[in-house]
């Protein structure tokens, strides 16, 4: 489509969507390089979650291009197809499968053939078991592997969901407010975990918590009323007069 998309991992150009006359996303453009980690901040209603919905196929944009890997048109695919392309998503509110054990949650997310019949006759291989064990180690839930996910604490559920995300082996992770409801210690650990992940995968983090964003130490995009207000390092954007105006008001 556009040459500009070439070489990028995620490419949004002039994307708009409105609900009942309300423009949730307004001519939004955003480019993410492979291996890049990006923090997205913005006040409530800035369109952060809607942007995630558009990328993951939950919402179709009214206009604009959304390209993955420089060429794949995401607006034509459904959620499952997009997930299988290698885009993983973590929700704002932790959603894990509450009536499954922690281990089964990871096992379900593990990269594998997703067909119904493949699943019917699926037997867990030792390779897969190894992956599961390693992931449980990473998210520090090895001890709780047989516990029902419903019984985890809020922070543990957030971690489990991140673990499930990693199990998908995505090329791009979309993480919506990972630090919400976490203790300070958990927040700090989450930042470390995300940076670890960002070494091998591209990550987009949406977050309110400025300390957390600072800890990530990555390029920041400020969203406001559905479009990009500023982009750059956290220090640069936080001294931007437009950003100050939006956040603090006149």
């Amino acid at each position: 489509m556009t040459d500009k998309a070439e070489g990028s991992l995620l490419y949004l150009d002039d994307v708009s969507v409105s609900f009942d006359g309300f423009r949730a996303i307004n001519r939004l453009s955003l480019v993410l390089e492979p291996g890049e980690m990006r923090a997205i901040i913005g006040p409530n209603g800035a369109g952060k979650t809607t942007m995630m919905d558009i990328i993951t196929g939950k919402t179709r944009p009214d206009t604009g291009d959304v390209l993955f890997d420089g060429s794949v048109d995401l607006t034509r695919l459904d959620e499952a197809a997009i997930a299988n392309l290698g885009i993983g998503r973590k929700f704002q509110k932790p959603t894990v499968f509450e009536s499954h054990s922690v281990e089964d949650n990871i096992a379900l997310a593990l990269k594998a053939r997703r067909g119904a019949f493949a699943a019917l006759f699926h037997r867990r291989s030792s390779v897969e078991q190894g992956r599961i064990d390693a992931l449980l180690e990473t998210i520090r839930l090895s001890e709780k592997r047989d516990l029902l996910a419903a019984r985890l604490s809020h922070g543990q559920k957030q971690w489990l969901e991140i673990g499930m995300l990693l199990a998908q082996e995505p090329r791009l992770l979309l993480v919506d407010e990972p630090a919400a409801g976490m203790t300070d210690a958990e927040t700090a650990e989450t930042a470390i975990l995300l940076k670890e992940i960002a070494r091998t995968q591209s990550v987009v983090v949406v977050e309110h918590d400025m300390t957390f964003v600072r800890a990530l130490d990555v390029k920041v995009t400020v969203l406001h009323e559905g479009s990009v207000l500023a982009e750059g390092s956290l220090d640069a954007v936080s001294s931007n007069p437009k950003v100050i105006e939006v956040y603090l008001g006149r």
Partner: peptide, 21 residues
């Protein structure tokens, strides 16, 4: 089977199951 686990996953959180692929 794993399919059965996916079914329960759908029951508990349908859209999450979609986003896993």
């Amino acid at each position: 089977s794993k399919l059965g686990k996916v079914l329960v996953a759908i029951r508990d959180a349908e859209s999450r199951t979609r986003f896993i692929g």
